[in-house]
Amino acid sequence: MRNVLSLKDVTMQFGGVVAVNNLSMDVNEGEIVSLIGPNGAGKTTVFNVITGVYEATNGRILFNEEVMLENYPKGKMKKLYKGENAGVYKKSVVKLPDKITKMGIARTFQNIRLFKSMTVFENVLVAMHLRRKSNVFTATFKLNMKEEKAMREKALELLCEVGLEDVKDELATSLPYGKQRRLEIARALATQPTLLLLDEPAAGMNPQETDELTAFIKHIRDKFNLTVLLIEHHMNLVMDISDRIYVIDFGKLISSGTPEVVQADQRVIDAYLGVTEDE
């Protein structure tokens, strides 16, 4: 199995708060891997570090076996740093989020971030901008009609894929939550990723919608040859869909393995599973 994403000793520290603590994990080609943990465990922060929204304080991230990020505590952090493996990483390689998306990592947001002035269709269309061949001149003077047409067709195709073609001309933010989440997925797919990061895609969905989503994620994984990294609280979905699971608490990895292994792990039950079942 080819390795797609690899985090090595990644620490993200905000001031004095260590949100992700020395986390290492691997995602292989074609897998669906879940990242779970209680609220505030640092899951979203892991996504933000992978996608370059935050600059990790220490550690290294490889994407398709290429160094995508490497960093070590610098400046004020030198003194403040509370994580491990200080001094192991000596280079500073940082990429901006748009570059990372271009390399093939797309994501959705836990707190939905659709473009609020745009229609459903335009939200997908704009995500195709990064693969353009046109420049500002050809685009303005409509010398890129072929490309524009192809973009529109592709956008419509993706909307059909997620079942939103009938609301394509509505304002994105006027949709109910479930549909907004699906639109976020369509928009992420429009960037033509090889690795898809989904941050709580089932949040706010009822059990039936959640089941549909489970099938849907598998479907797009197969159809678009994706590798999927998923944050989710719906345990049925996680256990059903995941090839492997990583569990974090307070930013630290507490368990990992197949769903069966993780489910039986006492540390996971203590820290997390026990709690959710009470809810």
């Binding site: 748009d98 971030r113 473009f115 745009m118 704009v126």
Partner: peptide, 14 residues
């Protein structure tokens, strides 16, 4: 204009 973070996540070089 709508959302810088989302725009960047869509691969738009700010």
């Amino acid at each position: 204009r709508d959302d810088e973070i989302a725009a960047q996540a869509m691969g738009i070089n700010l």
